[in-house]
Each structure stands twice: as structure tokens, then as C-alpha cells.
Amino acid sequence: MGLALSACTPAEVPVAVRIANAAPAVSVTARGETTPVGTTNADAADDPAIWRNASDPAASLIVGTDKKAGVYVYGLDGKVRDFSDAGRVNNVDLRDQVVINGAPGILVAASDRNDLARAKLALFRLDPATAKLTPLGTIDAGVGEAYGVCFYRDATALYAFMVVKDGTINQVAIDASGTVPTGKIVRSLKLATQSEGCAADERTGRLYVAEEDVGLWRFDAAVTGSTTPVKIAAADNRNIVADAEGVAIAPVGEKDGYVIVSSQGDNAYVLYRLSDDSYVGRFRIVDGAIGGSEETDGIDLMLGDFGPAYPGGLFIAQDGHNAAAAQNFKLVAWGDIEKALGLQ
């Protein structure tokens, strides 16, 4: 069996075999899900981002991409609140309290791959009252096909890390304060092969990136920082079963917490401790009152009050096999994940 499996790529090995060979994973169930994306019979839903309404948690919003068509906005009830026909956009992230055209607001960035030879950032303003997206235009983010994107904000500027399909990571300084947003590539990082998911920890100034067939890395996110990556974990088909995909962060205290990566090959999610990169555990989203999730691409996580349905915070995972329907996103209470992994 070992010789047979070694000759196969992860995708060629049956899922049941991948799960059997992987490290144990605890089970949780989703408490909610979004309406399926509009593109049917295709790998379409890809990446979510969460905006938490601090004054009214029930009015929080989810932004998610249909990478064949555009960007959706959902309520916590999973219903579609808006759709922007942006074409081929892959990953998405957002930041609140960004100066947009002279006033603070919620800035959304999606990795725009409409031109496969030239990566761009598609920018939008999200109105929290109406849940509507207003397109602000695109800015250049380097040569190659746009894949992953995540925001990072330091004391002086807002940046977007654009992960190009070949493993190049361009750090783009963004200024949305004028009539038309502008951007400038201020630094480039590099991983050797195809990469996508990323997340930045603004407390510690670290960037986390998933290299799909290789594993999880971290970089110094500061513009003047080292460009040398540090490997946190390998896609060893034990803890991370390739592909390593979406990345999210659960901050705890001033410097600790967890980085989570989607272990796409065996339908699981893996936690590593931020303070020392140590392995913490694995979980899966299994069938319950709502279906589970499989072959997840993008994930997002935000701690805090999202109302009684989501104690501890909200974890969202793209579901690559949503029964007979088109792909969608599954919503899980962070408190349920903590309890299952014994983190509480």
C-alpha cells in the first residue's frame, strides 16, 4: 500500500485513504451556511471574509467570492444581501476604519485574475447599513495570475499582500483616501511553487502563507523586514494533507493564539500555536443539521461577539461539495471548535 500511494499525487489517492492515513481530527458541525453561489456545476465558491458589527453583532456581514463571477455579501443568516459582478476574482479580505475618499469605511480587496498575465487588486467599499458593495476600481499588483490576498496594517500604512500563483508575494501599499485608490508595490517575497492562502497578524507583524504542495510558512510582514521565509509545517500528508489552502488567525492575548490552515486533501483544518509554531490539533466540519465541508479552499475566522448562535467567534469555510447544490460557505462557532480541541 505504501508503495502504491507514493506513486500517486494527493488528488489521486481516494479521500477515505487520505483520511485514514492522516492524523486524528475531532469533529464539529456547522451552525449555519450561505446560499450557494450562482455558478453551478463548477469549482466556484472560494474565499470568505468577515466584518463584525460591534454594536449589533446580528448585523455582521460575510463577503465571499465566486471565482467565476464576482463578489457576494451575505448576512449571518446566510442570505445574499448583495452581489458585485467583478468577473474572475479569487480571494478576498477586508479592513474597517480605512479612509476611503475622505471618510472612514470598510475596504474590501479581491484578487482580480481577469487578466492572467497581470495581477490586480479589485477594491470595493462595503456599506454596513445596506450591505452593498461599491466598486472603487483596480490597482496593479504585479506580473502573473492573482491568487491569494490579505490585508496588513501597521502604524503608518495599509498594505495588501498579493499572492501570485507562482509563489511570488507582492506587498502593495494602498492609499484609498483620494477620489481614485492608488497602490505601489513596496516589496516582493517568494515561495518556490504555487501558493494562495495568506493571513497577517498585525499584533506581531507576521505574515502566514500556504504553499499548496509544500506547507505553511511565515514571513516578517514589515516593509523593512527579512524576506526569508520560516517553515512552520510541511504538507506531510499527516497533519497537512496537500493541498495546503486557506489560512486564518485566532489571536489570543498580546502575542499568542493560533494560525489555522485548510488541509484540503483530507477535508480537515489544522491549528498551530502562534507563539512557538507548535502543532495544536486538527478538526473537521462533519454532517449535522447542516452538511459538512469538503475540499476547502478559503477560510476566515474572527473572534468576538456574533450573538448566541456563534459563541466565541465565527469560523467560515468554503465547502467544495455542497450536496447537489452549487458550492457555498459553512459557518461554525469558534466556541465549538475550542471545546472539541480542549482549548477552553
Rank of each mutant, 00 (worst) to 15 (best):
164 V>K: 06
49 A>N: 01
9 T>P: 00
139 I>T: 05
43 D>Q: 12
193 T>Q: 15
256 D>I: 13
230 V>D: 08
138 T>V: 13
169 I>S: 03
275 S>I: 13
35 T>P: 03
167 G>E: 02
322 N>S: 11
332 V>Q: 00
298 G>N: 02
305 D>N: 14
317 A>I: 06
210 A>S: 15
82 D>K: 04
122 A>P: 00
286 V>C: 06
316 I>N: 02
294 E>C: 08
250 A>K: 12
219 F>A: 05
143 V>P: 00
300 D>L: 07
75 G>E: 00
319 D>A: 10
329 F>H: 00
97 Q>E: 15
258 Y>M: 07
246 G>Q: 08
338 E>A: 14
298 G>A: 10
51 W>R: 04
137 G>W: 05
51 W>A: 10
186 V>L: 10
31 R>G: 14
153 R>M: 05
326 A>P: 02
181 P>S: 09
16 A>D: 14
119 A>S: 14
145 E>K: 13
255 K>R: 15
266 D>A: 09
151 F>Y: 11
258 Y>I: 09
165 K>L: 14
98 V>H: 00
191 L>N: 07
150 C>D: 10
125 R>G: 02
86 A>M: 12
143 V>F: 14
212 E>T: 02
192 A>G: 12
21 N>V: 03
263 S>W: 00
15 V>N: 12
131 A>D: 09
263 S>M: 06
285 I>C: 10
226 S>V: 10
319 D>P: 02
5 L>P: 04
226 S>N: 12
240 I>L: 08
2 G>K: 03
183 G>Q: 01
104 P>W: 10
144 G>H: 06
99 V>S: 12
339 K>E: 13
262 S>T: 12
110 A>E: 07
286 V>D: 12
106 I>Y: 08
197 G>Q: 05
66 D>T: 00
262 S>E: 09
213 D>N: 15
28 V>S: 00
14 P>G: 03
27 S>P: 01
138 T>I: 04
120 K>T: 11
259 V>Y: 06
111 S>L: 04
155 A>G: 07
116 L>A: 15
316 I>A: 01
290 I>Y: 12
224 T>Q: 14
253 G>I: 04
139 I>P: 04
98 V>S: 03
276 D>A: 10
87 G>I: 12
175 D>K: 11
192 A>I: 09
288 G>P: 06
285 I>H: 01
125 R>F: 04
271 L>R: 01
218 R>T: 09
88 R>Q: 14
84 S>A: 15
231 K>S: 10
116 L>E: 15
85 D>I: 11
203 R>K: 12
182 T>K: 13
316 I>W: 03
244 A>Q: 08
58 A>E: 15
335 G>V: 08
33 E>C: 09
315 F>K: 01
210 A>L: 04
249 I>T: 01
312 G>L: 09
270 V>K: 04
322 N>G: 03
47 D>K: 04
293 S>C: 08
179 T>Y: 06
317 A>P: 09
151 F>N: 01
170 N>V: 04
